[in-house]
Design a protein around this nucleic acid. Sequence first.
DNA 1: CTATTTTCAGACATCACAGTCTGAAATTGG
DNA 2: CCAATTTCAGACTGTGATGTCTGAAAATAG
Lengths: 145, 145
Amino acid sequence: MGLLSKSTEYALRAVLYVASRKDAKYVSIREISDELGVSFHFLTKILQRLTRKGLVVSYRGPGGGVALARPAGRITLMDIVEAVEESDLFTSCILGLAGCGEKKPCPLHGQWARERTGLGKMFRQTTIAKLAGHVVRDKLRLADG
Amino acid sequence: MGLLSKSTEYALRAVLYVASRKDAKYVSIREISDELGVSFHFLTKILQRLTRKGLVVSYRGPGGGVALARPAGRITLMDIVEAVEESDLFTSCILGLAGCGEKKPCPLHGQWARERTGLGKMFRQTTIAKLAGHVVRDKLRLADG
DNA sequence: CTATTTTCAGACATCACAGTCTGAAATTGG
DNA sequence: CCAATTTCAGACTGTGATGTCTGAAAATAG
């Protein structure tokens, strides 16, 4: 099992792509799906979710597309993950036990809680701006290959 | 998305349960599924996988059931995960990009690689014996509630 | 040998995620 | 107004993980 769902992977890649071309006003979903090599219609649904959540703004018609709703430096990975992913990786028990916590821990609770905290910190502290800058400077790819 | 699949969660809980009752020679799958509160038939399939992989030995007939194939101190969480889980969480790209690695990293590669290493260490260094001991000593539960 | 208990094996059903398709609504440009 | 472009909306299908069911095979006890 991957850490993130396909939907979340695509959402992150799409947002990073948009951020990495901040010269453009709106970036069309068709361009994004072509560049990322993913299904146009599927990506459309995912980006609509981000639009409804207010992370992205969209515009219809020629020259339209999507753009970030706020500066990339104020959007974190966690913002995207929470908007798309439903199950909460950062609070649930690694053995899937309901009610696992400090009071009634599962045998792995302590160790998993530590790892989970580190992961959460990474997602909360990393901004789209930082990664998009990384992409532009080092010419990193957002597609397979 | 959870970190582990349901199958892997059940496998870990079942193995921990068996290890925590090391007085018994064989523990029947019926007893395990009752104690864990999971489907008997589903758990049977998962334990058969562990049997085929050589982590567990089984015996049919009255008084039969499953037992650990080697001392719990020589079975790690990683052993179980690798036997049940197919996709490899500990080597794949967090954005799902094929060919992501040190040479052609995705923008998140560095950060994810660090977290991933910590996770892998936890799974590789933690033995069933340690956790089962934890369960027995502190009377921890392996079922919901 | 017979009946019971248990794992083994595989078919089948169910469900969520992933992906496809068609058409409506909005916007632009001529 | 008209045609083209693009997002929005939702129905539909495919696929793999999850879960259920039935019966065979092995072992035990009487």
